[in-house]
Design a protein around this nucleic acid. Structure first.
Length: 271
DNA sequence: CCGGACGCCTGTCGGC
DNA sequence: TGCCGACAGGCGTCCG
């Protein structure tokens, strides 16, 4: 399910229910996620107050005085806030009881998500250590992306989805931002001019920002975890529009495969 | 170092 | 209707 905007929306939705609240019980029904849920996770977290909730790439970081829990939603994961005694459905794998009252529930049909426990320096964790800059942060600039693309023969679309280059640009927004920037997804990263990289970075930031804003709107209309929109019903320009006319020029949108992932683009608007 | 392929899972959908 | 393969928004790991 989640690309970065969905993760950010999840963070904003659950934050008020989680931050400054105490985890009184951890219930792991299914430890077989992408990696086994650490056996000591419950012991470490139990009794701790969540002092802060942050995000790095698509990981959510639950901070406590004893350490930090990392949570990744994988492709089909979601978090919801439920009453303490809410009956568990099929893919409800982990419950965190908060103040003995409410329940933060992790649901994930495909079990590509994961939970980790790490110490006081979570950013040093192996999964976070080598990640590139945040797409909405100050370090992600046209100059940076240009420099990070020198000598790279890989297609720009796959380059954007490389978390060592920049985090949080998933399959949907890679296609969408390349369309907005007028860049062909198959073009070699190393053969894109600096000025076009500036444009591309601006479009990535713009499309992610719009999606997050839409998430905020959605949050106002639906409480966290009635599981409402899986992903944003945003007006996507190319993603999933194979054969439909380009909104800009009318040429049918084309679908191809790049590294086992679907790519959508307009042959006329993107060069 | 780089780039490409694989695999972890379940659910859904289209075609026959 | 039932079966079967393809595919799904991620990403760490392995291999050449």
């Amino acid at each position: 399910m989640p690309e970065l905007p969905e993760v950010e929306t999840t963070l904003r939705g659950i934050s008020p229910h989680v931050v400054a609240h105490r985890v009184t019980t951890v219930r792991v029904r299914e430890p077989r996620l992408r990696w086994p849920v650490p056996p000591d996770l419950a012991r470490n977290l139990k009794g701790q107050t969540i002092t802060g909730l942050t995000r790095r790439a698509k990981y959510l970081l639950f901070h406590t005085h004893r350490g930090t829990m990392l949570l990744h939603l994988g492709m089909s994961g979601s978090l919801s806030i439920k009453p303490r005694q809410a009956p568990a459905a099929k893919h409800d794998h982990v419950d965190f009881i908060l103040d003995g009252e409410r329940c933060l529930r992790f649901t994930d049909p495909r079990r590509f998500g994961s939970l980790h426990w790490c110490g006081q320096t979570p950013l040093a964790h192996a999964l976070l250590r080598d990640l590139g800059p945040e797409p909405l942060g100050p370090d992600f600039s046209g100059n940076y992306l240009y420099a990070a693309s020198r000598g790279r023969r890989i297609a720009i679309k796959q380059h954007l989805m490389n978390a060592r280059i920049v985090v949080g640009v998933g399959n949907i927004y890679a296609s969408e931002s390349l369309f907005r920037a007028g860049i062909h997804p198959l073009r070699s990263a190393g053969r894109i001019a600096r000025i076009r990289m500036h444009r591309l970075v601006a479009e990535i930031r713009q499309v992610l920002t719009e999606a997050i804003a839409q998430g905020d709107t959605t949050l106002r209309d639906f409480s966290v975890g009635d599981g409402r929109p899986g992903y944003f019903q945003q007006a996507l320009e190319v993603y999933g529009r194979d054969g439909q006319p380009c909104r800009r020029c009318g040429t049918p949108i084309r679908a191809i495969r790049q590294g086992q992932r679907a790519t959508y683009y307009c042959v006329t608007c993107q060069r």
